[in-house]
């Protein structure tokens, strides 16, 4: 007799406990976050339009008031769930193969797919630093509240900081390269004709985000953007 007992279990708990349920939560939160990442990048690319435009954009965001907090809380919750699922699934993975192979090869899986578990935490660590750096200013030596453009330029003048941003964003691109398609698969969206196209588009998405985000610190370092 199988050892499962579906009867009587609360449906939400069942869903949350299941590997597929966890992956769905992962996919939905991933969807929210990857959408945010795109918006965030497009917004910030306005830095190339000059200090006034950029500071105005920042002021507009600040002016959203309670709406901003709703968005922030939603994003924070998405990040929290995304990480919680990742931790749980990693523990499951370690449990599922207690004895490692002496030799193991991979045939088709991309580097990005196999390193989600590394790109994820590094991006998370970066996220904390990023918030402290350019949002609250705690990790920014020359932080000027309100002057977002100046904070941006002075922040990236430091090559170590710019480098860290670039590395983290390349990892983010890797994460998206696999993750964006993966979330469709986890949600059960698949079609023999469209899946290959979807997969390409998802990879393109990762690459675009990566390029866009790396462009900004790069522009400061190379002197294209200055105070």
């Amino acid at each position: 007799m199988s050892t499962i007992a579906v009867g009587g279990i609360n449906r939400t708990a069942l869903f949350y406990q299941s590997v597929i349920g966890k992956k769905v939560i992962m996919a939905v939160t991933g969807f929210i976050l990857s959408g945010f990442v795109l918006g965030h990048m497009i917004g910030n690319l306005q830095v190339f339009a000059g200090p006034e435009k950029f500071n105005a954009y920042a002021a507009f965001l600040q002016g959203l008031g309670p709406m901003l907090w709703v968005a922030r809380i939603a994003l924070l919750a998405a990040v929290g769930l995304h990480i919680a699922m990742a931790v749980q699934l990693t523990l499951l993975k370690l449990d599922a193969r207690p004895q490692a192979y002496v030799k193991k090869s991979a045939l088709v899986s991309t580097y990005a797919a196999r390193t989600m578990i590394w790109s994820g935490p590094i991006v998370a660590a970066f996220l904390i630093y990023h918030l402290l750096h350019l949002t609250t200013g705690h990790a920014h030596p020359d932080f000027k509240p309100g002057d977002v453009y100046a904070n941006f330029i002075t922040g990236f003048k430091n090559p170590a900081v710019a480098l860290f941003y670039m590395v983290a964003n390349i990892l983010l691109a890797f994460h998206l390269y696999h993750g964006v398609w993966s979330m469709f698969q986890s949600l059960g969206v698949s079609h023999p004709r469209y899946t290959p196209i979807l997969k390409r588009l998802a990879q393109l998405y990762g690459i675009v985000i990566g390029l866009g985000n790396v462009a900004m610190p790069m522009a400061v370092l190379t002197g294209i953007l200055t105070l």
Binding site: I4, V19, L89, D95, L107, V108, S109, A113, Q185, S186
Partner: peptide, 26 residues
């Protein structure tokens, strides 16, 4: 019923989860 029960049993047996790497298919 099939989906719910089979997935539950899959977990019960301590199999891991799918990260869509595609190794299995290959």
């Amino acid at each position: 019923r099939r989906a719910v029960r089979m997935v539950a049993q899959m977990m019960e047996e301590s199999f891991g989860y799918c990260t869509n790497t595609g190794e299995c298919e290959a």
